[in-house]
Simulated assay, not measured.
Amino acid sequence: MSFRVAVCYGKPEDPAAFDEHYTSVHIPLAKIIPGLTEFTWGKVSSMDRSDPPYYAVANLYFADEESLKAALVSPEMIAAGKDLRNFASGGVTMFTQEELSVG
């Protein structure tokens, strides 16, 4: 079991600018969030050729609920959150999830 924050990015006005800022500025900000055990991200494709609801999705993993709660109020998470306005012109949907392994 682990806990994660999922960050779902809507299609940005300028995808190239999003990609540049995300990889050069936002990833380094997010990677230093305390308690982070894994950080993944990727661009989204639809399986039926329709427009996907998101441009990209990032997942930030934490070992336990306490680590997640501490991370959410940390200065590092707050800084990463404030950075969203600098590149996420397509909007952002975020949620937390307790993940259970089923296999």
Rank of each mutant, 00 (worst) to 15 (best):
Y61D: 08
D83Q: 11
A6L: 09
F39C: 11
A16W: 00
L84M: 11
L29I: 08
P12M: 02
A56R: 01
L100P: 00
C8P: 01
T93G: 00
L60P: 03
A63C: 01
R49F: 15
H26C: 09
G42L: 06
E20V: 07
S46E: 09
Y9L: 09
S24E: 12
L84W: 07
G35F: 01
E99M: 09
T37K: 15
I32R: 15
P15F: 11
K11N: 09
E20I: 02
H21N: 11
A56W: 02
E65D: 09
V73G: 14
A88F: 02
F18V: 03
L29N: 08
F95C: 06
D51V: 15
V57Y: 04
P75K: 07
L60A: 06
G91S: 10
Y9H: 12
E13W: 01
S89A: 06
Y55M: 07
S24L: 05
K11I: 05
Y54H: 12
G90S: 08
P28C: 10
F95A: 08
A6Q: 10
G90K: 07
L60Y: 03
D51I: 14
P75C: 02
A30R: 01
G103T: 11
F62M: 04
R49V: 09
D19M: 07
S74L: 10
A70P: 00
E66C: 03
P34M: 03
S24V: 00
P34I: 04
E20H: 14
Y61P: 00
L72A: 11
L60W: 01
N59F: 03
S46K: 10
I27S: 01
V25I: 11
G35A: 09
T23L: 10
A30S: 10
